[in-house]
């Protein structure tokens, strides 16, 4: 992996994103709307503060995990739609360098997103150390699994083609809905209780709900498994595409 290549690709991602008003709006729309919705909900006093706080955290994690994952794939899509992907590869850029630059970019955006949220939580919504500790402790879980998913969905899109870009958002939403975000796992039917444990976000939402997770290490291991699985998928599908149809017109 060459540092100068990753740096050049990352700088290009930044430039491409922040010179495009549409992309900037896309990045801001979810965090801002979540803050506004939660702020109104909180201010109206129509629900218990505890419930409102829980909903906020779930939405924020959804948003941050989405930033970690979908931004990486959006940068890949940006190369595919502009048809510059092949031209970049013709310079000898390796796929891992491309993915790492996308992940650096999306992770940085995700962390900035998180810091903005924490600022609002602390200074506008009366949050404190509890929320900061929660987000910090959960960060490795949703960051690692989101990066794993970014690689996995990126691999699928590379193999199937750019018209399958919807996979990155849809896949994330399916996994989040599969994580029982709005009700405790114990309230689900038995077969579903086992199924939700496959989702890396189940542990995150359990933490939010109870202020702790029964088995943090298990959550961490699952996130690491997703990271390895994602890396395998990215390489496997990239090489499969290169062997069969080629990478000229993905």
């Amino acid at each position: 992996m060459r540092v100068h290549t990753v740096k050049a690709l990352t700088l290009r991602n930044i430039r491409a994103t922040f010179t495009d008003k549409g992309r900037v709006s896309e990045i801001l729309v979810f965090p801002v709307s979540f803050l506004v919705i939660w702020g109104l909900f909180y201010a109206s006093g129509i629900a218990e503060v505890h419930l409102a706080s829980q909903l906020l955290v779930i939405n924020l994690i959804w948003s941050i995990a989405g930033t970690f994952q979908t931004q990486a794939n959006l940068m890949l899509m940006f190369d595919l739609w502009s048809r510059e992907f092949a031209q970049i590869l013709r310079q000898g850029v390796r796929i891992e360098e491309m993915f790492v630059s996308h992940i650096i970019f999306s992770t940085t955006l995700g962390i900035l997103n998180l810091l903005v949220f924490l600022f609002f939580i602390v200074y506008s919504f009366g949050g404190g150390m509890t929320e900061i500790r929660m987000f910090t402790e959960l960060l490795p879980l949703y960051a690692l699994s989101s990066i794993g998913l970014a690689l996995m969905f990126g691999g699928f899109v590379l193999y199937l083609g750019r018209s399958y870009a919807f996979i990155s958002w849809t896949g994330l939403q399916i996994l989040i809905m599969l994580s029982s975000p709005f009700s405790p796992i114990s309230t689900l039917p038995g077969w579903l209780q086992k199924l939700v444990l496959v989702s890396p976000f189940t542990f995150v939402f359990e933490y939010v709900r109870f202020g702790r997770v029964a088995d943090y290490i298990a959550g961490l291991i699952l996130s690491i498994i997703y990271l390895f699985l994602g890396t395998f998928c990215a390489y496997f599908f990239y090489n499969k595409r290169r062997k069969t149809k080629g990478l000229m017109e993905v």
Binding site: H4, T5, K7, L9, A16, R83, Q91
Partner: peptide, 24 residues
């Protein structure tokens, strides 16, 4: 390639600076 493309919103200078950085 006669049909290779670059990102549509980048200027000539931005395109070349990116490729110059890639190839040092």
């Amino acid at each position: 390639s006669g049909d290779s493309e670059y990102y549509w919103a980048f200027t000539v200078s931005e395109i070349l600076k990116f490729y110059a950085n890639l190839s040092r």
